[in-house]
Design a protein around this nucleic acid. Structure first.
Length: 580
RNA sequence: GUCCCCGUAGCUCAAUUGGAUAGAGCGUCGGCCUCCGGAGCCGAAGGUUACAGGUUCGAAUCCUGUCGGGGAUACCA
């Protein structure tokens, strides 16, 4: 049980008397970590709104609540401040006892969600016919982190990569394959040749209008079951998928399901029929459209020429997921530019009868270059994902080498180790930079910033971890024997106390992540933890601490810090290294 | 035209969803190393939260309007 949940349990009966059982949970949400350490550890802010509601002075309400609370075993006497804030300061013994429990717990005392739910998480979803690029990073990384956090809290998660494997982009490479194939290049490296064909055809479409028509014809033939196009599709898919999987391997991302658009293609006609039959959709200008209240334009589910659209596929996908997984929530980790599409999609899903499921568009902003424009190469091309990863790792290699050279006792890492560390640091930096940002804002991409050893970066967090671990190496301390030794944790200084309290708050941070699907709540927590550790470490000797009981206590705090950082980063999909 | 998102320190971003004196990093200025990893620590300067109203005990956050930026907007995904 987290501290916050324990406090809520204590407030619940008192508040229930005041507002009734029905409203009590909402009021309990006003118990928060203190905004400022001077006010204590937690604060309860409900006296002000309740004062209004009950027609009594808020400070009087606060006093009433404080008086009736049974908190003596947990907190020092509550104080009332300002207009009616109830400030709470936990007893040191309570913190120590809980840290002790966390030290002996593989989950670091993070409680599972009280009500586990089933989530379908839809993320990454690259177009199979095009190389993955910088635009796929955010969806992939944010979606993966959300899955990890959900699972860790005991939710059931079905992650699904909804590949774009059936759309116009396939018509483009089919058309390109038939007219512009370099057979030798295709034999040598099919994916590179297909992506060249894709770019070539895209260029042609801009120059000559009729090319677009040919491309649509190839797409239509594929959809209609033309044997040649189907054969080519089956030929292209495995090599494209292998290429994509290589990226996921490197990123450490896995999916439970990879059900692309093609998986749903034979379900579309029936779905459109049903929409029409139930009076939800009707013909309009030759297309089939669902008109929605509050939307000026309808959602089209079938074109004049009979072809289906991604809205149709997405609806069929919702139906399949509901029938197969029976989820409580479906999350779509997708670019904010598709907001309108999802508004309409969700509205139509409700009309189809899917009312009890949470449908959330977890939207995120665009990746920008340092000039504030969408991130491109100097030549104006979209940056490929692989070259992005390579460059991050290359630069991380420079950072790692410089750091190793500068060590007081001389370099510690072999060339081989350095390479491994660079990969971990480079990929970690890329992910962390993305996750640390509030996902709704556009994100300015900068290698220099994301690999900085100062500030809220992946490299800084990995460094913080390696530093803590080095204490154990240097002191020749077996951390595995530490927790079971039963050594008591002592929180006698402000720095020890502040660190200890933060260590107990990982669970709160994870709850915040899920409250609005924002992984930056976890990075913020980790950065704060690293800061508190540094303050502690700066001021207090650990290996040289006397007497031995104090040394043991501080070693436990160090070990908990390392484990918490490692766990937190793992939930973001980021690895740590023991030395860097 | 209509709808959506955004506007916070010189720069890049936070702010637990309406809480107390709006916080970090970078940059600037000033301090601190015979001591466990100094890519560190301590301190200072820097804000009318775009602007104007409103709502209330309390507003960066909610409402209205204005200005500025981005996105979407009937047969791509």
């Amino acid at each position: 049980m987290s501290i916050l949940r324990t406090l809520k349990d204590r407030f619940r009966p008192v508040l229930a008397e005041l507002v009734g059982e029905a409203d009590v949970e909402k009021v309990l949400d006003l118990i928060r970590p203190a905004q400022d350490a001077r006010f204590g550890d937690y604060q309860a802010n409900m006296a002000m709104p309740l004062g209004k509601q009950l027609g009594r002075p808020p400070r009087e309400v606060a006093a009433h609540i404080a008086q009736r609370l049974q908190l003596d075993d947990l907190c020092e006497a509550p104080t009332i401040a300002g207009p009616g804030f109830i400030n709470l300061r936990l007893r040191g013994a309570v913190l120590a006892e809980r840290l002790q429990a966390a030290a002996g717990d593989a989950r670091l005392a993070v409680p599972p969600a009280p009500q586990p739910r089933t989530y379908v998480v839809d993320y990454s979803a690259p177009n199979v016919a095009k190389p993955m690029h910088v635009g796929h990073i955010r969806s992939t990384v944010i979606g993966d982190a959300l899955c990890r956090v959900l699972r860790h809290l005991g939710h059931r998660v079905e992650s699904d990569n909804h590949l774009g494997d059936w759309g116009t982009q396939f018509g483009m490479i089919l058309y390109g394959y038939k007219h512009f194939l370099d057979a030798a290049a295709y034999a040598e490296n099919p994916v590179a040749e297909l992506s060249r064909l894709y770019r070539h055809v895209r260029g042609l479409m801009e120059e000559r209008e009729e090319v677009g028509k040919f491309v649509l014809e190839e797409t239509a033939k594929l959809h209609a079951g033309d044997p040649e196009n189907r054969r080519l599709w089956r030929e292209f898919m495995p090599v494209c998928l292998a290429e994509i999987d290589r990226m996921y391997d490197r990123l450490g991302v896995r999916f439970d399901h990879t059900l692309g658009e093609s998986f749903y293609q034979d379900r579309l006609a029936g779905l459109v029929d049903e929409l029409v039959r139930r009076g939800l959709a009707r013909r309009s200008d030759g297309a089939v459209a669902v008109f929605l209240e509050g939307h000026k334009t309808p959602m089209l589910v079938q074109k004049q020429d009979g072809a289906f659209l991604y809205a149709t596929t997405d609806l069929a996908t919702i139906r399949y997921r509901m029938d197969t997984f029976h989820p409580d929530a479906i999350l779509y980790v997708v670019d904010h530019r598709q907001s309108l599409h999802f508004d309409q999609l969700f509205a139509v899903a409700r009309k189809l009868g899917y009312r009890d499921v949470e449908l959330t568009h977890v939207r995120f902003g665009t990746v920008l270059g340092e000039d504030g424009r969408p991130f491109r190469t100097r030549e104006g091309d979209i940056v490929g994902l692989e070259s992005l990863l390579d460059e991050a790792v290359r630069r991380a290699g420079e950072v790692v080498a410089a750091n190793d050279e500068a060590k007081p006792g001389g370099p510690e890492l072999s060339a081989d180790r350095r390479r491994g560390v660079a990969e971990t640091v480079g990929i970690g930096a890329l992910k962390y930079a993305d996750l640390a940002q509030n996902r709704t804002s556009d994100y300015v991409f900068s290698f220099d910033k994301m690999l900085a050893m100062n500030g809220n970066t992946g490299a800084y967090m990995q460094y913080a971890y390696a530093r803590v671990r080095s204490i154990f190496r240097k002191g020749n301390v077996d951390r595995a024997a530490l927790a079971p030794s039963g050594a008591a944790i002592r929180l006698e200084t402000p720095e020890e106390r502040a660190l200890g309290l933060q260590l107990l708050r990982l669970g709160e941070a994870l709850d915040l992540v899920l409250a609005d699907y924002r992984p930056n709540q976890l990075t913020a927590y980790l950065f704060e933890l690293a800061g508190r550790f540094t303050a502690f470490y700066e001021k207090h000797p650990v290996l040289k601490a006397q007497p031995d009981a104090l040394r043991q206590s501080r070693l436990l705090l160090c070990d908990l810090t390392a484990r918490t950082i490692r766990q937190g980063l793992a939930l973001l999909g980021i690895d740590v290294v023991e030395q860097m």
